[in-house]
């Protein structure tokens, strides 16, 4: 048993943030869950308990099905594109090139911009108008003779969410690159030299020496990108406003709560979003905690 003198100051100093965390994070998660079990449908609170009815209703809700599909399309396109592009950029920057610092900053810079700003700019770039009103990227494509690339972007039927994912990839690929680059740099140079001595080509060195060691980094990247994509809201609002073709659970939650004042259903949607993010985050937390304990 340690003496109080040893642990007391530490506990006292962290107590304010622990209490704040307990109230403002876990307390509100609990409060939100409680509201999701009510049929509160007006401006004034109404805690009429209806069990899991809101959850059951959502399962057969047509709009919610579209939301889940949109969320999945966005997440898959966004994550795969970010990981591949990030890895590619990291490997290119690893070639001991000139001005590496400059390029690193250039690729990383979009991350410093808010999704709203990105959204507004890309709304112009991804202008879907055709013929004599053509503009943005489509205009650029026709000017350089790549007419085949002209497309409807985020208004493409069924695959509009992939268009929304483009600006998100532009913004986060540099960050993924930074993660991978840090990972590559932490691999001891001796390993590569040993592989070279054994006669491995540069490609095989990356394939069999570097990539396998980047697995923990890739996992971190998946978790960070995954929770961003499952919660995406501002980017879509900035590019497309509120329209059902590009609806995601977060927008549905906003409209249900604040346009229709159906707080019970809104809280249910919020719980769903929390749950979907938890599916990604919790295994990762368990994994890293085990790893830390081991080392």
């Amino acid at each position: 048993m340690k003496r109080a003198k040893d642990w007391m100051p530490g506990l006292l100093l962290t107590a304010p943030s622990l209490i704040a965390l307990a109230v403002f994070v876990y307390g509100f998660i609990g409060w939100n869950f409680r509201i999701s079990l009510t049929d509160w449908k007006a401006l004034s609170p109404d805690f009429n308990f209806i069990g899991l009815k809101n959850y059951r209703d959502l399962l057969i809700d047509e709009r919610f099905k579209i939301d889940i599909k949109n969320s999945l399309v966005f997440t898959i396109v966004f994550m795969i594109a970010c990981l591949l592009l990030g890895l590619l950029l990291a490997i290119l920057l690893d070639q001991k090139m000139k001005f590496e610092g400059l390029f690193r900053s250039v690729y990383l810079l979009p991350m410093a911009i808010s999704f709203i700003v990105t959204g507004v700019v890309w709304r112009w770039l991804m202008n879907p108008a055709t013929d004599d009103r053509i503009s943005g990227l489509n205009l650029l494509f026709t000017k350089v003779g790549l007419d085949g690339l002209v497309n409807q972007w985020h208004l493409t039927p069924n695959w509009g969410m992939a268009g929304i994912a483009l600006p998100a990839v532009w913004q986060m690929a540099g960050y993924t690159m930074a993660l991978f680059l840090a990972g590559i740099r932490s691999i001891p140079e001796e390993l590569r030299e040993a592989a070279r001595v054994d006669g491995a080509s540069e490609f095989r060195i990356y394939r069999h020496v570097i990539l396998p060691q980047l697995r923990p980094i890739a996992l971190s990247a998946v978790v960070i990108l995954g929770h961003i994509s499952l919660k995406v809201f501002d980017l879509i609002i900035a590019i497309a406003g509120k329209q059902l073709a590009l609806d995601v659970p977060a927008i549905y939650m906003w409209q249900t709560s604040f346009d229709a004042y159906n707080f019970g259903k809104g809280a249910t949607l919020a719980t769903y979003i929390l749950f979907s993010v938890a599916i990604v985050i919790i295994p990762y937390l368990i994994f890293t905690m085990r790893q830390e304990r081991r080392s």
Partner: peptide, 17 residues
């Protein structure tokens, strides 16, 4: 009401799809 209008809006959004 806001709730009714929101439901009509959702129905319209689905119809546009």
């Amino acid at each position: 009401s806001n709730a009714w209008k929101a439901e009509i809006d959702t129905a319209l959004g689905l119809f546009l799809q």
